[in-house]
Computed example of a mutant assay.
Amino acid sequence: MMPRQAPIGILGGTFDPVHFGHLRPAVELLQHLGLAEVRLVPGRVPPHRPPPRVGPGQRLAVLREAVAELPGLRVDDRELHRDGPSFTVDTLCSLRQELGDRPLCFALGTDAFLGLPRWHRWETLIDYAHLVVMERPGHPTRVSGAFAQWLEARRTRDPYDLRARPAGQVYFLPVTQLDISATGVRRLLARGESARCLMPERAWRELAGRGWYGYPQV
């Protein structure tokens, strides 16, 4: 039996705007799990949060600048071309159709994972991809009830399992979680203050000079 190709990681979000709090965990996913790449997938209409502050084209432009010098990270804009809410299950189904039986690892934070039972068709996500839960080091995720039983039947503690099959496992990975938020970045920009060093320089220059989140900066 031929070994499978290295898994592809998927990390979604509004990226409104992207910052190092998004990018550092993506780099750690890439390295710790030996992924072929991590695709950052900006959503058009997030189902569980307010609409993004700026339009999809603007967020996409900044995101592309942010990953331009980060090998292994790339932007996948498929959700921006779909009408209606950006449901994760639709994105994973699309990727599965495109990539065949190549392993996929959909990464999400602890808060998102705990809210998973409220997601659209959440129980089918694992049919299309492995779930990788990004934890804060020293703060293990705790679940209870039926959700805990669902997790126990699918959890693996061996990262090799993410390579051995295309989908179906849940793996917990401690990652560096920087205390940076898109909300905080937007507030700085709206006040005309600099958000420099909170994101890659190329991304900062792309959004700051255009004043997309407030006053133009220099």
Rank of each mutant, 00 (worst) to 15 (best):
L151Y: 00
R157Y: 11
T176R: 14
L162K: 07
A112F: 08
A167H: 03
T124N: 10
I126A: 08
E193W: 12
R118A: 14
V133D: 02
V67W: 01
P117A: 05
V27T: 10
L188Y: 02
G84H: 09
V41C: 10
R4P: 05
L92G: 03
L162V: 01
V132N: 11
S144L: 10
H48W: 13
F87R: 13
A182P: 01
L40Y: 00
C105H: 04
V185I: 15
L40I: 01
L198W: 00
V67C: 01
E98I: 04
H130C: 09
L29D: 00
A203T: 02
L189A: 13
E98K: 07
L30H: 12
R163N: 09
L80T: 04
V89H: 00
A68Q: 10
P216R: 03
V41M: 14
S144I: 08
M134E: 04
R186Y: 01
D161A: 15
P3E: 11
L60E: 14
R187A: 13
G43P: 02
L189C: 11
L35E: 05
S144Q: 14
G12R: 05
V41W: 06
P3I: 03
G12A: 10
H19K: 10
R44T: 02
F106R: 08
T124Q: 15
R163V: 09
T156D: 03
L207T: 01
R155W: 05
V132Q: 08
P51L: 15
L11S: 07
A167N: 01
L60N: 07
R102S: 07
R24F: 03
L95Q: 12
V45D: 09
T88C: 01
R205H: 05
W204I: 08
I180K: 12
R191K: 14
V175N: 05
I8T: 09
M134C: 09
G43R: 03
R165L: 07
S86W: 06
R191Q: 15
R118Y: 14
G100M: 06
Y171E: 06
L114H: 10
A148K: 15
V218Y: 09
T141S: 12
R78N: 04
P56I: 06
R64N: 08
V54T: 13
G34E: 00
V175K: 01
F172V: 15
L60M: 13
Y160A: 14
G84Y: 05
E37D: 02
D127L: 04
E28L: 11
Q97I: 03
Q58T: 11
L131K: 07
L178G: 11
G34M: 00
